[in-house]
């Protein structure tokens, strides 16, 4: 076991996840939240940008709150692959010794975090929903555990860096301030294409819906039985985004980027309408902070009714279109940018 001296490690790093110049919004959420950590510790907030032709991303990272940006810009880093990203990250950690590293809990973020925590012997906590730092610099990484009924605080006292993946949508991003100053530092790229173990043959991403931004959401569960039409109809009437439970995503009825819950996103809209969703704790975790929750389910004993403000027991294929008709006269939401 390698003993390290935690006092040699400082600064908070945020991994900025970009795909071909498109940054996942969770990265900006983390950069904003991490400001409160460095205010506490008096350290630097460092954004880590790895990719190819990332100048735009680097500038935005400063505008979004980074004091310093570490840039590894090379063709070997586009598209993302765990092995070259892992090698590069390891070299940077060994050279610069960050105390805390925060990573968005997307598929890519979890793939990356799991890879890099091992060679650096970091403590890694998954899917955190709250973070703060104690006086001794120890990160308090909190995550729902045991099906969401308890909040566990995970700490890492003797190892560095202290790493955490954070669930998308839990924190809010700050708007960019274009006159902010920050340092840009280009690091040595330590990976060569010949050393990589993988090759991406094809990558296809459609629209990546950001349900975390929506003010109103209609969410589909297993009860829809593959028919999204009632959900679309109701969402149209409400001016709402469509989301889904894990069940509906696993069945392939709704894209995974719209999944709400423990392994999906956390949302806090003004209105959340759960349609044909039983209300498993894993799902509730992702939507419990919604202002108003409405449940439509044919099972009067479904747990979702205990977590809803208004509920109706009925066949969703009848209730949704009727409700859409009844609401059609209601005011449309103001457009928010």
């Amino acid at each position: 076991m390698t003993d390290i001296d935690p006092s040699e490690y400082s600064d908070v790093w945020v991994f900025v996840e970009d795909h071909d110049g498109d940054v996942m919004s969770v990265s900006w959420e983390l950069l904003n939240e991490a400001k409160t950590l460095v205010e506490e510790t008096g350290e630097e907030l460092v954004a880590l940008v790895i990719g190819e032709d990332v100048d735009g991303v680097v500038e935005e990272a400063i505008a979004r709150g980074a004091d310093r940006v570490l840039v590894a810009d090379d063709g070997v880093f586009e598209p993302y692959r765990a092995d070259p990203y892992g090698e590069q990250f390891r070299a940077m950690v060994e050279e610069r010794k960050p105390s805390i590293v925060l990573i968005g809990g997307t598929h890519t973020g979890r793939d990356f975090a799991g890879r890099v925590a091992v060679p650096t012997h970091a403590g890694l906590t998954a899917d955190c929903t709250e973070i703060d730092v104690a006086e001794d610099g120890v990160l308090q990484a909190r995550r729902p555990a045991f099906g969401g009924n308890v909040l566990a605080t995970i700490i890492c006292e003797e190892h560095r860096p202290q790493m955490a993946t954070i669930r998308p949508g839990v924190f809010e991003a700050a708007p960019p301030e274009n006159d902010r100053d920050g340092e840009i530092e280009r690091v040595d790229v330590v990976v060569e294409e010949a050393d990589t173990l993988t090759e991406v043959l094809e990558r296809s991403t459609g629209e990546t819906a950001d349900v975390t931004e929506a003010d109103r959401i209609v969410a589909a569960g297993g009860g829809i039985d593959g028919d999204l039409e009632p959900i679309r109809r109701l969402a149209d009437a409400l001016g709402a985004e469509i989301a889904a439970s894990r069940h509906a995503v696993d069945e392939g009825w709704v894209d995974g980027s719209r999944q709400i819950g423990q392994t999906g996103k956390t949302v806090r809209p003004e209105l959340y309408v759960a349609v044909g969703i039983s209300g498993a704790v894993q799902h509730l975790e992702g939507m419990n902070d919604s202002e108003v929750v409405v449940a439509i389910n044919n099972d009067p004993n479904a747990p979702i009714f205990d977590h809803a403000d208004y509920g109706i027991v009925g066949d969703l294929f009848e209730v949704c279109p009727e409700l859409a008709d009844a609401l059609e006269g209601a005011e449309q939401p103001e457009v928010t940018l």
Binding site: Q140, T153, G311, E322, A326
Partner: peptide
């Protein structure tokens, strides 16, 4: 590297829990 530093029960969110009888009432 990691240890559990503490556990707390998550307080449920207080909801109205009103189940209505028909669609017009829900609207």
């Amino acid at each position: 590297p990691t240890n559990v530093g503490g556990m707390e029960t998550i307080e449920g969110v207080d909801r109205e829990r009103t189940v209505v009888d028909d669609v017009d009432e829900l609207a």
